[in-house]
Nucleic acid binder design. Structure first.
Lengths: 156, 156
DNA sequence: CTTACTGCAAATCATTTGCATCCCT
DNA sequence: AGGGATGCAAATGATTTGCAGTAAG
């Protein structure tokens, strides 16, 4: 699915939910589909403004919230500060492996893993509505720099 | 390990890191070890004040941060707002199953799961430093209330 | 004694909200 | 038209920080 199609799909989905299609939303969606995964609200704001000067932060947040509610975007909150948003359109369920050294986020899927989790939950008497797996990892060439394995993107 | 021992262990660990042992920290640690998992900074503040009136919010945060840095407490940020802290002392690695209906958090371990993840990461050329698995699930008696599976503890 | 620790009040910062105006439909 | 959407400015709310006083070692 190319970016144009994605944008149109999102537009339709939102219109169907009864929201109005404005120039700002158009710009925000364009910026969103043209971006490679995982951006913060502020990054999206900048990108959107490059398309339409008039986009404001509240509108970005409001639109992002709409998208999250519509299930087209996922919101994730890491330690530290701002939330990261990710366009889900067209991608299946997946997990994240965060390269602690570079900060890169690698997406992956693993059926075996999903099955294992479903089975486990079933045993406990639950049905999984949504699950999240995050691996914080280091490349296996260098021997881990020191002792603190946990990612610490102290930004605030 | 009983709560007294836990408290002493934490005290020693922190002293070894060269921090001074104050009445407030004593109260905060006592409150912490006497609590059943997963509390917010504010909850800990209340509990601490029940022991020592003079404990203030900044001190709770400062102490909590010390504990996190020392690796004795984990901090987790869910969607929404305040972070949740969890005493790790004496418990092994574990994951969480969050009951979406009741908000209860059930801890579990699963070796098979951990192995699977380690193997997977190795294949990708990574060594896992720390991983996090969160299952948002609903009890399998009632048929899920509606359509939105994602936990929405809208508090803000 | 020295200087880390504390409480208080003020500062931060991401995100939200009130409101008057604007413009999709 | 009519009501949702927008920008602006102000509000929120968790967490942090500056500072002067206090107390641990």
């Amino acid at each position: 699915m190319d970016t144009r199609t994605k944008a149109k799909t999102i537009e339709q989905a939102l219109r169907n939910r009864g929201v109005r299609w404005t120039g700002q939303r158009q710009a925000i969606i364009e910026a969103l589909v043209n971006t490679e995964e995982h951006l913060t609200a502020e990054e999206l704001l900048h990108a959107s403004r490059a398309i339409d000067e008039s986009v404001s932060a509240p509108t970005v947040y409001r639109t992002l919230n709409l998208l999250v509610e519509a299930g087209m975007v996922s919101k994730r909150v890491f330690q530290g500060d701002s939330a990261c948003y990710e366009l889900l359109l067209g991608k299946g369920h997946h997990h994240h492996l965060i390269d602690v050294e570079s900060g890169n986020i690698i997406e992956f899927t693993n059926e075996q893993l999903d099955e294992l989790l479903d089975e486990f939950a079933a045993e406990k008497g639950y049905r999984i509505a949504c699950h999240k797996v995050e691996l914080f990892a280091v490349p296996i060439n260098k021997p881990a720099p020191s002792d603190k394995p946990t990612a610490k993107p102290k930004k605030r």
